[in-house]
Design a protein around this nucleic acid. Structure first.
Length: 204
DNA sequence: CCACGGATTGGCT
DNA sequence: GCCAATCCGTGGA
C-alpha cells in the first residue's frame, strides 16, 4: 500500500506546461477529493489531452464562452462539464493563461474510500462485488464515484479540497499512446495516454 | 425563442 | 452491436 502522507502535492509549475506533457505526466499521480471527513483517492491510469488552438474536439476551439472560461485560465484549475444529459466529466486545466488547454481524466485505480465509491456507483447492493473494476473506468463513472459535479468547476488544485499528489515515476514503456475516444472531430490526434495492462483503463 | 448535438453509460437484441 | 436517457450550452432566427 502506498503511504500517501509522504507524497507532495503537485504545484503550479507542474500544471502550467504543455498539455500533452502534463497529460503523460499525470499518469500514476494520485487524485484526491476531501468531502468533509470523507476522503476519496486513486491513481490516474488514463487521460486525454485537449488543445483548443488546433483541436476541433476541444471545448475551447470556438473561443471563450461562459461554460469553458476556466479552461482559459493558467494551469492548475479544475474544469467540470455536463454532457449527454446525464454525466459529468472532469478535467485538469494546463498551460499558460489564455491557451485553452486541459486534460480529461478517463481512468482511475481506486485507493481510499472504495466502499463509498461503490455505494455512489451501485448503492449498497452486496451482490455486485464483482464490479470492482467497473467503479472508475470512464470519465462519467469517475465523477459519480468521486462525488464530482458542476459545483466543483473552477476549484484551484493547489488547495485542500481537490488536489493531486506526486507518486513514483512511470517508465515510458509502461505508457500506451493512442487516439481519443467518443469524439467526432480531430479523431486522428494521438493524444490519449494510458497505463499498459491496467484493469481500470476504460477501453484498450 | 427554438433546434441541435454531445470528451457517456447501461441495458437490450 | 445498437440505442435511449436526459439536459444544457451554443448558435441562429
Amino acid at each position: 500500500m502506498i503511504n500517501l502522507k509522504k507524497l507532495s502535492k503537485l504545484n503550479k509549475n507542474f500544471y502550467t506546461r504543455d498539455v500533452n506533457i502534463v497529460a503523460k505526466n499525470l499518469l500514476g499521480k494520485i487524485f484526491v477529493h476531501h468531502i468533509g471527513l470523507k476522503k476519496l483517492s486513486g491513481i490516474i491510469v488514463e487521460v486525454e489531452a485537449y488543445d483548443g488552438s488546433i483541436d476541433k474536439a476541444a471545448h475551447t476551439f470556438i473561443g471563450k464562452t461562459k461554460r469553458n472560461e476556466i479552461m482559459f485560465e493558467q494551469g492548475g484549475f479544475f474544469y467540470v462539464y455536463f454532457t449527454y444529459g446525464t454525466h459529468f466529466c472532469c478535467n485538469i486545466v494546463t498551460g499558460k493563461k489564455d491557451e485553452g488547454t486541459a486534460v480529461l481524466i478517463r481512468g482511475i485505480e481506486p485507493l481510499e474510500g472504495i466502499e463509498i465509491m461503490f455505494n455512489n456507483r451501485f448503492g449498497l447492493n452486496k451482490f455486485l462485488k464483482n464490479k470492482k473494476f467497473d467503479l472508475t473506468n470512464g470519465p462519467g463513472k469517475i465523477c459519480q464515484a468521486f462525488e464530482i459535479n458542476k459545483s466543483h468547476c473552477g476549484i484551484d488544485l493547489t488547495g485542500n479540497e481537490i488536489y493531486l499528489l506526486e507518486n513514483k515515476k512511470i517508465k515510458e514503456k509502461e505508457i500506451v499512446t493512442t487516439t481519443r475516444i467518443g469524439i467526432k472531430k480531430s479523431i486522428d490526434l494521438p493524444w490519449r495516454y494510458y497505463l499498459k495492462d491496467n484493469p481500470h483503463v476504460s477501453k484498450k
